[in-house]
Computed example of a mutant assay.
Amino acid sequence: MTETDDAARHAAKMARIKAARDRMMEGKTDRKGLVIVHDGKGKGKSSSGFGMILRCIAHGMPCAVVQFIKGAWDTGERRILTEHFGDLCQFHAMGEGFTWETQDRARDIAMAEAGWEKARELIRDPEIRMVLLDEINIALRYDYLDVDEVVRFLLEEKPEMTHVVLTGRNAKPELIELADLVTEMTMVKHPFRDGIKAQKGVEF
Rank of each mutant, 00 (worst) to 15 (best):
V151K: 04
D125K: 03
D148E: 02
R169A: 11
E174P: 08
K172D: 11
E121Y: 03
V150G: 10
N137A: 08
L178G: 09
P126G: 08
R129I: 03
A139T: 15
E156K: 05
I123F: 12
E174F: 04
D143C: 15
R120C: 08
D134A: 03
P173N: 13
R124F: 08
L154S: 00
P159Q: 02
V151R: 06
P159M: 06
N137K: 10
P159Y: 02
L145K: 03
E184P: 04
F153P: 05
R169H: 14
I176M: 13
A139C: 13
F153L: 00
R141D: 12
E177Y: 11
K172F: 09
L140E: 12
E174V: 02
T162D: 02
Y144V: 12
H163D: 15
V182L: 01
V165R: 09
P126Q: 00
Y142S: 13
D146I: 10
D148N: 05
V164Y: 14
V182N: 02
L175M: 15
F153T: 01
V131M: 00
V150N: 05
L140A: 12
D146L: 05
G168D: 11
I123R: 14
E177R: 14
T183K: 09
M161F: 11
A179F: 09
I128C: 04
L122A: 03
T183W: 05
I128K: 12
R120I: 10
D148W: 02
E174K: 14
I136F: 08
D134K: 06
E157N: 01
V150Y: 08
E160V: 07
K158R: 07
R124D: 10
M161K: 09
T162G: 07
I128H: 04
D134M: 09
I128Y: 05
E149G: 00
T167H: 13
V164M: 14
Y144L: 14
E135K: 11
K172H: 14
R169Q: 15
R169G: 13
A171I: 09
V164L: 12
N137S: 13
A139E: 07
E156H: 04
V147I: 14
V165S: 10
N170L: 14
V147L: 09
I128P: 07
E177W: 07
E177S: 08
R124W: 04
D134I: 03
L178E: 11
I138M: 13
D134L: 04
E149I: 01
V150K: 06
V150C: 11
E135Y: 13
R169K: 14
